[in-house]
């Protein structure tokens, strides 16, 4: 028996959300008295043995140029083979774009019950019950997985890794790589930016900022905080900001430690994408803005005056 964690990588580096998945899988392994093992495909530049600090005993690697690009078809096949040969009973993914493409496929392949968007460790007192987000962050469901093999995808920032001592053993795994049915013709990535889905701090702007030319106050604060930037739907609909920054019901759902909303009214569809944030700060000139009801800290004021002062104050605090 073992717990298998899919370690997702981008440009040779294991993603932060995979560290969380590794730590989560290790914590489940501890509960179930078994070992947690990771699997990574393609060429990586990271020191994989250091994944031991997230509790992994082993990391299985399959380095092959055909695997540098994610392919749900091929990866499903490989993970299913690995899971069977390692006798894995629980398989863990991050609930990110790749996890969403692959976990459902694997679930069918192994006839393993799937819970996506898990937010805490499973309750093993009566069966195997996983808590997940439902109703776009407005509630949780406790879902019992009844099959022998289980697949879970973990929400970003839902499980904080505690670092441990010890190294993971890095072992190549040999698996036959099937042909791919999907040809990737182009990849466009904004590199250097903090991926919004994984960011711990997010600074977000709404229609209150009046136009794209005013975004400097948002990006300056984000830069000072090491944060990612986001926006409300009308902002991306008007092409003030790129579409991948749109958060909410119809955009990305995020759960950073800190979400700073500037000039956003806090419509229910916007809140649906951000209400799982641990701490919410709202800056709005209208004291009646609905967002204040969902906030932890609020400032009533003109964003153009308040935000640069906050950026200054952060700078001061850091020095």
């Amino acid at each position: 028996m073992s717990i298998l964690i899919f370690l997702d990588q981008s440009e040779g580096h294991i993603k932060k959300s995979s560290f969380e998945a590794a730590a989560y899988g290790s914590a489940i392994a501890e509960k179930m008295n078994t070992s947690a093992e990771g699997i990574v495909f393609g060429k990586t530049n990271d020191e994989l043995k250091s994944l031991g600090k997230y509790g992994l005993k082993k990391v299985h690697t399959l380095e092959d140029d055909r695997l540098n690009n994610f392919d749900d078809d091929v990866f499903t096949h490989l993970i299913a083979e690995a899971a069977t040969s390692l006798n894995a009973t629980v398989i863990i993914f991050s609930n990110n774009f790749n996890g969403k493409a692959i976990a459902p496929r694997l679930s069918v392949r192994l006839k393993a019950g799937l819970v996506t968007g898990a937010v805490s460790l499973p309750d093993l007192s009566e069966g195997f019950v996983v808590k997940k987000n439902v109703f776009s962050g407005k509630a949780f469901a406790n879902v019992s997985i009844k099959s022998a093999i289980k697949v879970i995808s973990l929400n970003a920032n839902a499980f904080k890794p505690v670092e441990k001592e010890g190294d993971a053993e890095v072992v190549p795994i040999s698996l036959e790589i099937p042909g791919s049915r999907v040809k990737v013709v182009k990849v466009d990535k904004v590199s250097g930016e903090i991926p919004l889905a994984e960011a711990e701090i997010v600074v977000s702007g709404g229609r209150g900022l009046k136009g794209p030319e005013n975004w400097g106050i948002v990006t300056d604060l984000a830069k000072e905080l090491g944060a990612a930037t986001a926006c409300s739907r009308p902002v991306s609909d008007s092409d003030w900001r790129p579409h991948h920054e749109h958060v909410g019901q119809t955009g990305l759902a995020i759960a950073p430690n800190l979400y700073i909303a500037i000039g956003i009214s806090g419509a229910i569809q916007h809140l649906a994408g951000v209400n799982r944030s641990k701490t919410i700060v709202v800056i709005n000139k209208d004291p009646e803005a609905p967002f204040f009801k969902a906030a932890d800290y609020g400032i009533v004021g003109d964003a153009f005056e308040v935000v640069p002062k906050i950026t200054e104050a952060v700078k001061k605090m850091k020095s």
Binding site: F97, V182, V185, V187, S191, E193, P195
Partner: peptide, 13 residues
């Protein structure tokens, strides 16, 4: 299709 921090173009029959 959307991928982390960007987009990918795929061809598939």
């Amino acid at each position: 299709r959307e991928i982390e921090g960007g987009e990918e173009v795929d061809e598939v029959s």
